[in-house]
């Protein structure tokens, strides 16, 4: 399974800050939109949002913690 590199863009004029977490999601701060698998853009509504990078979340584009299950099985694609 390849690492997903989420497509993120600012939703307005505010600053956008993104930081990858080792073995986990991309943390996104600031008003932002994140692209889903079907190409549609989803608005974040939180002060800080976790965006899936392992590709296995049931809530994509958002993280749901599934990367931890992949890590336990030794198949987490994210370092």
């Amino acid at each position: 399974m390849a690492v997903e590199e989420p497509d993120v863009r600012p939703a307005g004029d505010g600053p956008l800050r993104c930081r990858p977490c080792p073995g986990g999601p991309l943390l996104v701060r600031g008003a932002a939109q994140v692209q889903g698998d079907d190409g549609t853009w989803h608005d974040t509504t939180r002060p800080v949002t976790a965006v899936c990078r392992c590709g296995a979340s049931a809530l994509r584009p958002w993280c749901d913690g599934t990367h931890k299950v992949l890590s336990q099985r030794g198949v987490n694609p994210i370092e």
Partner: peptide, 14 residues
């Protein structure tokens, strides 16, 4: 809490 705490976890730890 599935979605919110996936982000809260990272922020709270790091």
């Amino acid at each position: 809490h599935v979605e919110a705490d996936a982000a809260h976890e990272q922020v709270a730890l790091r």
